[in-house]
Amino acid sequence: MKNIPLILIYSRLFIGFGIIILSVLHIDHYAFLSISLLTIGLLTDVFDGIIARKLNISSEKLRRLDSGIDQVFFISVAISTYIQCPNFFKLNLMKLIVLFSAEALIYLVSYIKFKKEIATHSIGAKIWTLILFATLVEIMVHCKSVVLFELCLWIGLLTRLEILAIILILKKWTNDVPTIYHAIRLRQGKEIKRNKLFNG
């Protein structure tokens, strides 16, 4: 039972690479199969933490691994989507560069300050993940996205700014920090309340 969270986390690696293979091979019904795998991947991301906390085995190492593999998973999905829909990426190149740069920046700042990658698992980041999921689904089906992509872009940038603020506020590296408010309380040496299901 205690290996279930780890299995769920690592399964996203195989799911992400599987989606890339489907894209490279131009498999029939690519959109249906890739969206199904993307959905399964998202569900493993939701339940690995919940199960780990239920089993009382949630740890810093596990949360860092979760964050790292999340990055690989969504990059894999982005690569496969690019293979299928290159024109969408060309039309939105500058916006995507800005978004990816914001993501890279929070990792860079975290490494400079704490010598560790981020694992804040903030509420805003969780909301953005759902919007990103919906946007990727739309692109996979139609090879275009306007309203959802714009929403994804701006919510993504806002949540990256929030995470950057959390990193700068914290005195020491901490995983599972829901909001800036919680980061301020931690900086003040106060206890914070976390949701038992979603935030450690």
Rank of each mutant, 00 (worst) to 15 (best):
residue 151 L to C: 12
residue 95 K to N: 14
residue 101 S to H: 05
residue 63 R to V: 01
residue 190 K to H: 14
residue 98 V to I: 15
residue 46 V to N: 02
residue 185 R to K: 15
residue 59 S to C: 00
residue 47 F to S: 02
residue 59 S to A: 01
residue 176 D to C: 13
residue 18 G to N: 01
residue 183 A to N: 09
residue 15 I to H: 00
residue 89 F to D: 07
residue 135 T to M: 11
residue 8 L to M: 11
residue 120 T to C: 11
residue 174 T to K: 08
residue 58 S to I: 02
residue 116 K to E: 10
residue 158 L to E: 03
residue 14 F to Y: 08
residue 164 L to E: 07
residue 87 N to G: 06
residue 103 E to T: 13
residue 95 K to W: 12
residue 156 G to F: 00
residue 84 Q to H: 14
residue 121 H to D: 06
residue 90 K to S: 11
residue 122 S to Q: 09
residue 98 V to A: 07
residue 88 F to Q: 10
residue 47 F to R: 08
residue 51 I to V: 06
residue 31 A to V: 13
residue 125 A to H: 07
residue 109 V to T: 05
residue 154 W to T: 02
residue 104 A to C: 12
residue 159 T to M: 08
residue 47 F to G: 04
residue 58 S to T: 04
residue 106 I to N: 06
residue 185 R to I: 05
residue 42 L to H: 12
residue 159 T to D: 03
residue 169 I to G: 06
residue 181 Y to E: 15
residue 126 K to W: 02
residue 26 H to T: 15
residue 168 L to D: 08
residue 118 I to L: 09
residue 1 M to A: 10
residue 74 F to Y: 06
residue 178 P to H: 04
residue 72 V to W: 00
residue 134 A to Y: 03
residue 60 E to Y: 01
residue 114 F to R: 09
residue 172 K to D: 07
residue 25 L to T: 14
residue 44 T to F: 02
residue 62 L to G: 03
residue 80 S to L: 02
residue 61 K to D: 06
residue 190 K to D: 13
residue 93 L to G: 09
residue 174 T to Y: 06
residue 77 V to T: 01
residue 14 F to K: 04
residue 55 L to S: 01
residue 117 E to P: 13
residue 92 N to G: 10
residue 40 I to P: 04
residue 116 K to S: 11
residue 162 E to T: 07
residue 48 D to I: 00
residue 98 V to Y: 07
residue 187 R to M: 11
residue 139 I to Y: 09
residue 93 L to A: 15
residue 196 K to Y: 12
residue 44 T to I: 01
residue 185 R to G: 08
residue 10 Y to T: 00
residue 129 T to A: 15
residue 4 I to R: 05
residue 180 I to H: 13
residue 89 F to C: 07
residue 46 V to T: 07
residue 126 K to L: 04
residue 47 F to Q: 03
residue 18 G to P: 02
residue 129 T to P: 04
residue 199 N to F: 09
residue 31 A to H: 14
residue 91 L to Y: 09
residue 31 A to N: 14
residue 115 K to W: 03
residue 83 I to A: 05
residue 30 Y to N: 11
residue 21 I to A: 10
residue 81 T to Q: 06
residue 117 E to I: 15
residue 111 Y to N: 10
residue 183 A to W: 10
residue 197 L to T: 11
residue 83 I to V: 10
residue 135 T to Y: 03
residue 157 L to Y: 04
residue 18 G to T: 01
residue 135 T to G: 04
residue 163 I to M: 13
residue 154 W to A: 04
residue 53 R to G: 05
residue 46 V to Q: 04
residue 55 L to C: 02
residue 49 G to R: 00
residue 8 L to N: 00
residue 39 T to W: 01
residue 30 Y to T: 13
residue 167 I to W: 02
residue 37 L to G: 02
